[in-house]
């Protein structure tokens, strides 16, 4: 079943030196599955994710032939209806938790705000739900974190709080932008299993943005490979290590390997031709 279908998405920034095209004609669809988006930094992964929520700030603008989520075209949707979807049915974990948690509000307030305002829960019920969410992302001392200020959290802790906050409203679609980059491998595995569980048991759709090809090939079902704002290859995640496109192969080849030669690592060929529309 298709949850999201994006046709010919474009994101353009109007800058002093002319328009910068961050996303150029991206099309993809997503069921209740784990879709990975990989590519070098600057390739347009974050802008693609934010576009689905229509969270591109000026001077950036979004265009698409269509962007259908659960039967509604998000492109023409009036802002109040879009706002009702955001956070509730489509949620996004931002790349840098430092910029997405409000620095002047305690974690607990931020976790319960939506529950109280949107869902009309009592302060007590909201608190119980928030603490459970913190526990679900393997935070060992949820009470302490609930009463903490964002600056008192480590990078990994902040990342998990963000994930907890996004999962509280039980969204149908979660867009996770480099959600585990700040995490240690062991914690990373725990967070991935939480996300995985939500996809399997609740049928959530997941867009998993990462620059780590090995991680995506292990964790996702399908992968889009982006280069200079375009999708150059789409393939099943398990085939990622045997990718056919020379750009994807280049990304894999420049990784060092245990027992590999000591010769210089191959440089990535950044051919202009692959960026052509």
């Amino acid at each position: 079943m298709t949850l999201l279908s994006v046709q010919n998405l474009r994101v353009t920034f109007d800058t002093e030196t002319g328009p910068v095209q961050a996303v150029r004609g991206v099309s993809f669809s997503l069921g209740r599955e784990r879709l990975g988006i990989v590519g070098e930094s600057g390739s347009g992964k974050t802008m693609t994710g934010r576009s689905v929520l229509r969270l591109i700030r000026p001077p950036g603008r979004i265009e698409a032939d269509s962007m259908v989520f659960d039967g509604q075209d998000l492109i023409g949707l009036p802002e109040p209806q879009m706002r009702a979807l955001r956070g509730r049915r489509i949620a996004m974990v931002m790349q840098d938790p430092k910029f997405s948690l409000n620095p002047v509000m305690k974690v607990g307030f931020q976790l319960t705000e939506g529950l109280r305002q949107r869902d009309g829960l009592s302060a007590k019920d909201a608190r119980v739900k928030a603490l459970a969410a913190l526990q679900a992302v393997q935070i060992r001392d949820p009470e302490r974190v609930f009463h903490a200020w964002p600056h008192e959290l480590s990078g990994g802790m902040g990342q998990r709080v963000m994930i907890a906050m996004m999962l509280i409203p039980e969204p149908d679609l979660l867009i996770a932008d480099e959600p585990t980059s700040a995490l240690d491998v062991t914690v990373q595995a725990e967070v991935l299993s939480i996300l995985d569980n939500l996809v399997k048991t609740r049928g959530m759709g997941l867009i998993f943005i990462s620059h780590d090809l090995r991680l995506v090939s292990r964790f996702c079902d399908r992968v889009l490979v982006m280069y200079k704002g375009r999708i150059v290859e789409e393939l099943p995640a398990r085939d990622l290590m045997q990718a056919q496109h020379p750009y994807t192969q280049g990304l894999l080849n420049c990784l060092p390997r245990i027992g590999g030669p000591r010769t210089p690592l191959p440089a990535l060929d950044r051919s202009q031709a692959w960026a052509q529309e």
Partner: peptide, 15 residues
């Protein structure tokens, strides 16, 4: 760093 930039940086360090 990205894999591609990591490769360039490791090559630089080795050189």
């Amino acid at each position: 760093l990205d894999a591609s930039v990591q490769a360039e940086t490791l090559n630089l360090l080795t050189r």
